[in-house]
Simulated assay, not measured.
Amino acid sequence: MLKIGEFSRLSRISIRMLRHYDEMGLLTPDHVDEQTGYRYYQERQLTDAGRIISLRDMGIGVQAIAEAIAGDEAALERVLRFRRTQLLSQSQAIDEQLTRLESALRRIGKDVFEMNYEVTCKTLPQRYVASVRDVLPSYYEEGRLWHTLMKETAPLRLQVAEPCCTLGIYHDTDYRERDVDVEVQMSVKGTYEDTEHVKFKTVPPILMASATYTGSYEKVNEVNAAVAAWVRDNGYEFDGLSFCIYHVSPHETQNPDELVTEVCYPVRKKAERH
């Protein structure tokens, strides 16, 4: 048998963590001397310690490690798949942050905060659309909805309307850090039966104030400020959910500087309030 110090050295787990794992029931000593309180481990427990270290180094928490070790292969697979999903989500967020950072670096010294955006007031006509709506972990994951829309409608051979209007609508009345309610729409011709997640519907006309800009999505705050100023100065008020029309989307270019987005806010004349 091995004293706790020897086991710590061989397992590469600190004595503090060994005691913590004992408290959690994750890795308990084989024997504890009743008189001295000394803890002893069996050599075979080094294998269990190795599994714990491997899972810990993947960023898996103690509770999940306990579930993986105590269960069968199915439990281990479930824990690993869940962690993979977490890491993929984090990776997407990091990629988005890196894209924003690179774009900001390129724009240094180019009057990046000068808001020369032309705001117009117009009516978006009535449309027949294919729509997918869901609650997402973050705004950055809107692509999931587009993937679902395209995958489920592929057998339907949709006829795209001319011009084709693709947009994302944000159904929350305030900004959310997570669990965001997002809907994507693509205008189509003809009529179709709903699929599991895709709904077909007619959307009424929308009077809106909008501004179109070229570049990465990090510019949206500047555009929002320009639209808000226009609404204030022209006697309008906001009247509905904001949305973005994607004239050139990430589906068409991987270069954020080539994106073309129209930021839209439904409005009405203040005098028209009843």
Results as ranks from 00 to 15, higher is better:
204 P>W: 01
268 R>L: 05
125 P>N: 00
154 A>N: 04
32 V>N: 03
118 E>C: 04
121 C>R: 12
184 V>F: 06
7 F>M: 11
220 V>K: 07
257 D>T: 13
167 L>R: 12
274 H>W: 11
176 R>P: 08
157 R>N: 14
249 S>M: 07
72 D>M: 01
100 R>G: 05
220 V>A: 10
39 R>F: 03
35 Q>H: 11
133 R>G: 04
37 G>A: 10
64 A>K: 13
155 P>T: 07
206 I>V: 11
210 S>W: 03
260 V>K: 15
81 R>F: 09
188 V>S: 03
85 T>N: 07
123 T>Q: 01
168 G>Q: 04
199 K>W: 12
153 T>K: 07
103 S>G: 13
32 V>T: 14
23 E>K: 11
49 A>V: 08
162 E>R: 13
82 F>R: 13
30 D>G: 13
101 L>T: 15
223 V>F: 14
178 R>L: 11
16 R>Q: 14
79 V>P: 00
257 D>Y: 05
60 I>G: 00
201 K>R: 15
28 T>F: 06
177 E>R: 11
89 S>Q: 11
22 D>C: 02
136 L>Q: 10
262 E>P: 06
190 G>M: 06
28 T>N: 06
55 L>N: 01
137 P>I: 09
251 H>K: 10
143 G>W: 08
176 R>A: 13
60 I>K: 00
181 D>C: 08
87 L>C: 02
177 E>G: 07
188 V>W: 01
183 E>T: 05
261 T>V: 15
17 M>D: 10
129 V>T: 09
101 L>E: 04
159 Q>K: 14
69 I>P: 00
191 T>Q: 11
155 P>M: 04
98 L>R: 04
46 L>I: 12
150 M>A: 06
244 C>R: 01
95 D>Y: 02
199 K>R: 15
